[in-house]
Amino acid sequence: MNAVGVDLKKLRAPALLLVLLLLLIALPHARPGYAVVLVYTILMYIVLTVSWVLFSAPTGYVSLAPAAFFGVGIYTSAILGMKLPLPVVICIGGLASAFLALLVGALTLRLKGIYFAIFTFGLVELIKHFVLWYELKYTGTRGRFLLPVGNNTIYYVMLAILVALLLTTYFIKRSKYGLALQSIGEDEEAAAHTGINVTLLKIITFAISAVFTGAAGAIWAIRLTYIDPYIAFDVNNSFMPVLMAIFGGLGQLYGPILGAVVFSFLREVLITRFPYYYMLLIGTILLVSILYLPNGLVGLIQRWRRRIWGGQHANT
């Protein structure tokens, strides 16, 4: 009896996720139109946030490079979109971003703390202006157009990227590499003494996180239909994942996901309802949440749980 109870408890989370996945798969059939657009926007932010968390949360290296990887994905799609089938374009977008991450990682992952953050931020600006210069000088046009595809296609591709990302994150977290990444964040020198190849592990994880950001960019480009360097390398795409992850809470994997869902939904609602005040409102929400929710939404949920179930869960 007891054994069955334990087994059921273990199965609860995967079962819940499976139901959620089926609902997401069914959504475009049940409610086509705006709902699909809204949900794939949210999915895109989840991808950005979780891939940021994959590298930056355990290691403590705050990366502001997501916009660079996202933009590389966008441009891959803009250049190859009409020549190659969509899945191939998405894969190349991811790989191109990973390649950039390997290069940047090898150069800069020796930088500590704030220096790494500033360098990655500079990278976004650098690539943006390089692309702008290239386009004006060699193609003579500032932007590019993409052939639109159906909303449902964008939706399913984004969902597939997210599922692949979540599986990857889950397996890394469960393996010894997940623990090793955390030990790098806690004491990098001690981590090296335990036999971890810290440089290699950091670079590879950075690249893995870039794969998904780039892939998301490649499909997002098609939704945008017109892009130029300012749209593709928008620095907001670097800050949003950080904000969403902190808003959700970094301790558990579901924190950043929850943060991305709530925050991007909020953003969407505020943009449509209060187009002039939306940045003001977003800023206020952020300030309040940092002041009163130091551990993000996860911290809030844990506090509620404790109140409902009493002191027995105090340690979780």
Partner: peptide, 14 residues
């Protein structure tokens, strides 16, 4: 220089 935010067992596994 143990890893402070990891459990004793996780430290050993590392």
């Amino acid at each position: 220089r143990v890893f402070p935010e990891m459990t004793v067992r996780e430290n050993l596994e590392m």
